[in-house]
Design a protein around this nucleic acid. Sequence first.
RNA 1: GGCCCUAUCGUCUAACGGUUAGGACAUCGCCUUCUCAAGGCGGUAAUCCGGGUUCGAUUCCCGGUAGGGUCACCA
Length: 438
Amino acid sequence: MSNNIRTRIAPSPTGWLHIGTARTALFNYLFAKQNGGEFILRIEDTDKARSKKEYEDNIIEALSWLNLDYDEKYRQSERLNIYQTYLQKIIDSGKAYLSLEQAMDGSGDIEVVRFKNPNKKITFTDLIRGDITFDTTDLGDFVIAKNMLTPLYHLAVVVDDHEMNISHVIRGEDHISNTPRQILIAEAIGANIPLYAHIPLILAPDRSKLSKRHGAVAITDYKEKGYLADAMVNFMALLGWSPQAGPEATNEEIFNLDQLIKIFNLETVNNSGAIFNLDKLQWLNREYLKLLPQEKTVQEIEKYLPAISSLQKDKQSILISIILEKIYTWSDLENLVKNGGFDYFFTPPIITDKTKLKNTAHLQDTIAILEKVAPDDFTSTTVKNALWDFATAKGRGEVLWPMRYALTGQDKSPDPFIVAEILGQTETIARLKKVASF
RNA sequence: GGCCCUAUCGUCUAACGGUUAGGACAUCGCCUUCUCAAGGCGGUAAUCCGGGUUCGAUUCCCGGUAGGGUCACCA
């Protein structure tokens, strides 16, 4: 499939990669890849004062984490001569002019380059919103460069999109009103007008533009919080687009990057802003956590709970299932471990308040029953089977609560059978004997 | 304020002009259960308002209202 679909993400390195920019990158990536095209990263660092290398590094780190691989990378600060050439061309053709004006920062007079506005109506067809018309008269003769070597945003964007053969400009709807200016410049340099698709913004819960005051907005914040890249990608795809729409409609919502490439549809992207819903992200993240191969999961859990490696494989997988049903992200696990949430699996609990055991009357019988379970088959199932009738006869709470409490020292924990299996027969009985002698 | 965009459950969203307005997250209830989770099952919950067009509007048109974006020698 050889066509000329080329898209780009053009962040300016004046802040960390924002979740909204990342979602725009995702849509650009998906659209390019599903059409066998190229996805390009262009660092828009023409503002020397505000651009910082650390932000560029953050952008690259975030895109890499999300697996949004770009085919080409450019930095506008390295292309100044190109802009200068085009600038000269526009000036020579009389479509822009030098203008001596008092600098806005009060630093004396400077000569800026203004675009000679033809004052006409511009209509473009937005792939998502249909025809949009602007009267450029309201724009005046806008400035396109501070001087011959310092192009401003609109000029640099148009020149680059032209030079880089960008076929589709997919960007946030905050750029809709920038489009007529850019079309005017494109016409002035004789460039093809790319196809535009303005996607809806990501909003904060109060429907305002999502910003730092609403908490974590940088992609790397989510990386650090222990979210999975696949979950993040899946979640962002669902913001403003739905697999439920279109001819290939499905109610399924779990799609990784490769699957999204196949089913994403730019035409069914929504046109209204979407609120960032953390609950759904968390749910999605757990879904992806469950999908992780055990080896990978153990590896990750070891970072926070090294003791898990001392367990046998089958016991590891039981503990994993216990852990996964209690966390949404790895940082949840980190917190649980910090608060001693899983200590009892590895260290006997210290029980000082024996009234917490409630009823100790059946402890000796419980021990006797557990001692009869075959040592080589001491599993949650065999333990449960051995104990069940006895517990039912005495009142399950009368038998099971003290057993569970003796094993864990916790008011809340997984059931005593599964805890017993992980601890093993010897340790289980030892813990029970200890409290039985109170 | 000018210009532009938008409007379906709390949230994300689906519905060739004809559907009991569907799904997911959240929430509530039930089941399971010694506890906490997880899981299973079920429920509550929406077409912003007013006019048209039409036999029939969530859907098409107009107006209103509301929200958002943008109006730099930032991007």
